[in-house]
Simulated scan of single mutants.
Amino acid sequence: MSEAFFTDKARVRAAFERAATSYDGAAVLQREVAARMAERLDYIKVAPKVILDAGSGTGEGAAELRRRYPDARVIELDLAQAMLLASRGKQQQAAGLVSRLFGRDKPWQVCADIERLPLADASVDMIWSNLAIQWVNIPDSAFAEFRRVLKPEGMVLFSTLGPDTLQELRHAFSGLDGLTHVNRFIDMHDLGDAMLSGGLSEPVMDMEKIVLTYAAARDVMRDLKAIGAHNATAGRGRGLMGKRAWQQVEAAYETWRREGRLPATYEVVYGHAWRGQDKKSNRLPDGRQVIDFVKKG
């Protein structure tokens, strides 16, 4: 991926901070993908004691994980503090009384970047990450962090977006200027390589396309803004787009209209992998190699 398409983490954080109050009303795709991820857990026999929801948003995934694994401790981690506060508010409302949010029912939340997890080595049994890895520029680093905090035989299950995501919007902006207007996403096969590079084992990947439809191009942009999915690329424009330019984009998007609706395609990539058992080292702490000599009868 070229540097022009690298995401600006500060902009990503600010966008999600602002979107916390509008997120749930527009996060149709996120809820659907989370439901499909949860179905996959029906076929994976695990009994985790500690689960990390990496990129937890407003807590929908964490709620499902608590329901599915009632004896587990679920840690919500997100880049935006406002998202974590929104999740906490929903948990307090569901509890009925704030006093019930002490002890084991008190939510565990961490505001941090998934590329730099503030968690101890080998402290988590399972990592769940729904539509968050697409905001990472170098996924190898995120997967390496996942492996570091996973216990041996721990599992990571994630979803992210592939390169055909928002292809209609990208086409509508093409030729407008030399700037980037739509985030670019990493290919499924490259993600598989990144998992191996990050030290995870037995990666399994698959992909499907989900198409949402809208009445107008402005509705697509409005939903993206509501969930905090702004253009966060380094090569984006820094000013507002003019009326004539927007009319050009709308006209180009109209060529995709079918049966009275405009499509917005999302290429959803799913993956899971494991942290295997650590191999026994034959080196001393100072790096010297230990060689065993076996005396034969």
Rank of each mutant, 00 (worst) to 15 (best):
D278P: 15
A122K: 15
K106P: 01
G239L: 12
V28H: 11
A144P: 01
W135F: 10
H181D: 06
W128V: 05
Q91C: 03
Y266N: 03
K209V: 12
A38F: 05
R11F: 00
A234C: 10
M155V: 14
I210M: 15
S22C: 07
K279D: 11
I51R: 08
R31C: 04
P48C: 10
W108S: 14
L117G: 07
I51G: 08
N137E: 04
A10I: 02
N183S: 13
D177A: 08
F16K: 10
L29S: 02
F173R: 02
I291G: 01
L117P: 00
Q91D: 10
R288F: 00
A229H: 03
Y43F: 08
A232C: 14
I291S: 08
A245P: 00
R18C: 12
I75L: 14
A194S: 07
T58W: 05
A217I: 09
Y270R: 06
Q277P: 08
R11W: 01
D292M: 09
Y214G: 01
D8S: 07
A20I: 01
S123K: 06
T213A: 02
H230V: 09
K151A: 14
M221W: 10
V12H: 06
T7D: 02
R18E: 15
A34W: 04
S123I: 05
H171R: 11
G235R: 00
E76K: 00
A264L: 13
Q92F: 11
I227R: 11
K9W: 00
A20S: 13
K106C: 14
G228I: 06
A86F: 10
E17C: 13
Q81D: 14
S22L: 01
L131C: 02
L157E: 06
